[in-house]
Design a protein around this nucleic acid. Structure first.
Lengths: 184, 184
DNA sequence: GGAGGTAGTGAGTGTACGGTCACTCATATG
DNA sequence: CATATGAGTGACCGTACACTCACTACCTCC
């Protein structure tokens, strides 16, 4: 927090950023550390000096991902035109939809769910989901079922993107993405 | 359809069943064909005689998965106490929750989303989602936004299982799983 | 200028896995 | 019996990848 970052710690942060991009493209098992290293303009060996192993790197990326999501929700809530519970929830939803237009943070969460049989990954997911849910509830003041719906539609959003519903011209496709904010 | 199955085709079906179990446990990339073969009491080489490759086997498993889901929804709808749109949707929701108590069909869908960068997998997902959505809409007669909500809460269900919300004793966890039918 | 620590790397090792191939065994048919 | 066909397998190959280690380049402070 108050501590000045050493060069290695700065490096770690850039590597985490690269890891988010790389892992989001091909998932936990599908992404070799070498790809992350390449993306960070660093040797593969050095990645292992900065992180104890692939698992820890993935978890670090996932944690950063949730941090970014929370920041976006916070900003969205602050910019809500109506500060009613539903108004705030809607604003957070829009902010989330806007944030994940680049797909990186979204896909990383999807891949993390798929890798949730790794205990550390599952725990990171739990922590992230806890923070998001608790923040959405307390910041909006909405009742439980509204918050539950908020999370559920977030997941629907993930489905829409992974399946590529957006570029299907069909009734069922329109039905699913109705009201989900477009990446204009 | 009317054709009598040859032994090889029977074999293919049992292998698909094994594939569902194996892939659901460790995902597309995390599951070696050898594990599927072992589960089916068959040599690895023979799996490659029955299916052109890993990708095709995974897709076959995914397609079977959606078939089972549709059957469950159909049965659930038929057993609905009230044949109103909302009543039928609720019954289908309960049937789905009951079906995926064993986690196999659920996890397979999650892993498929993570592997959706493989075109064949993405297309299989599209077909499956299309059939499920269209069936839910036409069989229940509910309006679009209700069907959308139905799918969204299905995804929430996936999230709850993958992150293991059920065995967390905390407010946010209860909030998320409220009203989702338990595997009693 | 040299001693010691920190950033960073090249070249490897062991292993797991997708896919292939040459083969065996059982059955059926004439 | 001879032969053909399809079920089923063991042994193998090439490659990709997580992780290691011995090493160099640089920086800083005396």
């Amino acid at each position: 927090m108050g501590k000045v970052l050493s060069t290695a710690e700065v490096r770690r942060e850039t590597v985490v950023a690269s890891a988010i991009r790389a892992f989001s493209r091909s998932g936990y098992l599908g992404t070799p550390i070498a790809k992350v290293a390449e993306e960070a303009r660093i040797s593969t060996a050095y990645v292992f000096k900065l992180f104890p192993g692939k698992e820890a790197l993935f978890v670090a990326a996932l944690e950063r991902c949730f941090e970014l999501v929370l920041e976006a929700l916070e900003a969205g809530a602050a910019g809500a035109t109506e500060q009613t519970p539903e108004g705030v929830l809607d604003a957070m939803g829009d902010a989330y939809a806007h944030l994940i237009a680049d797909r990186d943070l979204l896909m990383l969460q999807v891949h993390a769910q798929s890798a949730s049989d790794v205990p550390e990954v599952r725990q990171a997911l739990q922590r992230g989901l806890a923070r998001v849910t608790e923040f959405a509830a307390s910041r909006s003041g909405a009742d439980d079922s509204s918050v539950q719906r908020f999370i559920a539609y977030g997941q629907l959003c993930h489905l829409i993107v992974t399946v590529g519903v957006e570029n299907i011209d069909s009734n069922w496709a329109r039905l699913l993405s109705e009201g989900i904010t477009h990446p204009a």
